[in-house]
């Protein structure tokens, strides 16, 4: 059975009905294990003290914020190329989750920044990039909600997502050029030298998995809602025509 068969709304509904529950359970388990482990069973950092433990919220939400946008880019492309409605609706469903993740990353960052840098906000490149990402999410969602016809909205938001991705990428480098930052290096680097030590790393991985499953469950739930709304829209149109 081809992957594309799930693009049929009926198949998608049947499949996700079975997947969504386990995704919620996995999210709950991984988040409770990861957060409890991270908050209570890891040592304090020798420089940052206990404030470092906010990484168990900050890093996964930031990671998801970026990757949800990438997922929206991919689903938008699939809609533009293959015209599967489910794909466009999945992009629409993911945006509010993505903007929430961005907001969590920004807020936890501010809370972490206050004791570390002495300020809630600094125009550091990473922080600024996330603020810009937040604006892109807002624009994307605003365009969805402004257009009445669902297919027109799907087309235009997909084009915006494509163009926005290019500009988000450009902004990232422009912002680096504009201000060298305060932010510490990546916590999740392929380069082991830069990475945080294993004591913090394993609970962080569990938290990441938790955030991922939470996203998966939420986006499936929201996509299913969007599919039902789309159906209701089609039924209204039919009845008006009949």
């Amino acid at each position: 059975m081809s992957f594309w068969e799930y693009a049929n709304p009926r198949r998608f509904m049947a499949f996700t009905d079975r997947v969504m529950g386990p995704a919620f359970v996995l999210a709950a388990v991984a988040l409770s294990v990861g957060l409890v482990w991270g908050f209570f069973f890891t040592p304090d950092d020798f420089r940052q003290g206990s404030t470092v433990k906010i990484i168990y919220l900050h890093v996964p939400s930031a990671f998801m914020a970026i990757n949800i946008w990438v997922m929206m880019l991919v689903t938008s492309l699939i809609w533009l190329i293959r015209r599967h409605h489910v794909s466009a609706l999945a992009a629409k469903a993911a945006a509010p989750v993505g903007v929430t993740m961005t907001l969590i990353a920004l807020m936890t960052g501010a809370i972490w920044g206050q004791p570390m840098w002495g300020t809630f906000w600094a125009w550091d490149p990473r922080l600024t990039s996330f603020l810009i990402l937040f604006l892109f999410y807002l624009g994307y969602m605003a365009l969805w909600s402004a257009i009445e016809d669902p297919d027109t909205a799907a087309d235009l938001t997909s084009v915006l997502c494509l163009v926005g991705s290019v500009f988000a990428f450009l902004s990232r480098y422009a912002v680096n050029f504009w201000n060298q930052g305060l932010h510490q290096g990546a916590s999740l680097s392929m380069d082991a030298e830069e990475n945080i030590s294993d004591v913090f790393w394993f609970p962080l991985l569990v938290c990441l998995a938790g955030f991922f499953f939470l996203f998966l469950a939420l986006v499936l739930l929201r996509t299913r809602t969007e599919i039902r709304k789309r159906r209701a829209h089609a039924i209204t149109l039919r009845e008006r025509a009949a």
């Binding site: 049929n8 709304p9 599967h84 159906r231 829209h233 089609a234 039919r238 025509a241 009949a242």
Partner: peptide, 15 residues
């Protein structure tokens, strides 16, 4: 005039 599709069968295009 197009006849409205019958029943609850929704295909890919929701039409």
């Amino acid at each position: 005039r197009a006849s409205a599709p019958q029943g609850g069968a929704f295909d890919e295009a929701f039409a």
